[in-house]
Amino acid sequence: MGQAREVLDRMTETAVGMHDVDAAVDLYSDDAVIMTPDAGKVTGHDNIAEYWHQFIDAFPDGKYEHIMKLESDSTAVDEGYFVGTNTGDMKTPTGETIPATGKKVRLRSCDIATVKDGKITEHHVYFDESEFMRQMGLSPQ
């Protein structure tokens, strides 16, 4: 196992498994960038922490189920499902608050992380926003 795989595994376990967003953010470089379908480009530790908190805090029982793990050179890729129950309010990237719905979601996702010197420098997060909203009961079936 290479460094990229090790760091992405630690980030996923720390943020999603242990719900310790602040420790997970320490795995990102100071100039790290996350690209997301909902918030777009997120940079800087404070903004990265805010992005992860809005999601992790809304699903306190959340976990990640891996389907596939890949690694090539300095890049690690995860494909899997985020599974959790929305029991906490969720702040959207636009600043709105979505009250907890009590709905359980099983959302397929893909993460691609580039690692340099033991830190994530670039992280692309992919998931279907429409499917997420449908499972949350916030859009038509």
Score class of each variant (00 low, 15 high):
Gly84Met: 05
Leu8Ser: 06
Asp61His: 11
Gly17Phe: 00
Gly2Phe: 07
Val83Phe: 12
Ile98His: 07
Glu131Ala: 05
Gly80Pro: 08
Phe55Trp: 13
His124Cys: 03
Tyr126Leu: 14
Ile56Trp: 05
Asp9Pro: 00
Ser109Ala: 14
Asp31Trp: 07
Phe127Pro: 03
Ala24Leu: 04
Glu65Arg: 09
Ala113Val: 05
Thr97Tyr: 12
Val115Ser: 01
Ser29Ala: 14
Tyr64Cys: 04
Lys119Gln: 12
Ser130Thr: 15
Asn86Cys: 15
Pro37Trp: 07
Pro140Ser: 14
Gly137Thr: 06
Ala23His: 03
Tyr81Gln: 06
His19Asn: 08
Gly40Trp: 04
Val33Ser: 12
Ile112Ser: 06
Trp52His: 10
Asp38Val: 15
Arg106Thr: 09
Tyr126Arg: 10
Glu71Ile: 02
Met90Gln: 07
Leu8Asp: 04
Asp78Ile: 08
Gly17Ala: 04
Met90Asp: 00
Val125Asp: 03
Ile98Asp: 03
Thr12Arg: 08
Gln3Trp: 01
Ala23Asn: 02
Asp128Gly: 13
Ala39Trp: 11
Pro93Asn: 08
Arg10Val: 02
Glu6Trp: 03
Met133Gln: 04
His124Phe: 10
Lys103His: 12
Met1Leu: 13
Glu71Thr: 09
Glu13Trp: 10
Phe127Met: 09
Gly40Phe: 11
Phe55Ala: 04
Asp26His: 01
Thr114His: 14
Asp61Trp: 13
Asp30Val: 09
Arg10Phe: 00
Ile56Asn: 02
Val25Leu: 01
Ser72His: 15
Lys69Ala: 04
Phe55Lys: 04
Ser130His: 13
Cys110Trp: 02
Ala24Glu: 02
Val16Gly: 01
Val25Ile: 03
Ile56Ala: 04
Gly118Thr: 01
Thr101Asn: 06
His66Arg: 13
Thr75His: 15
Asp38Arg: 13
Gly118Glu: 00
Met1Asn: 15
Asp46Ser: 10
Tyr28His: 09
Phe127Gln: 03
Pro37Asp: 05
Ala58Trp: 08
Gly118Lys: 05
Ser29Gly: 13
Ile56Met: 06
Ser130Ala: 15
Val25Ala: 00
Ala32Asp: 03
Thr85Gln: 13
Ala49Asn: 01
Cys110Pro: 05
Thr12Leu: 12
His123Ser: 05
Gly44Ser: 09
Ser109Asp: 08
Lys91Gln: 07
Ser109Gly: 12
Asp30Pro: 05
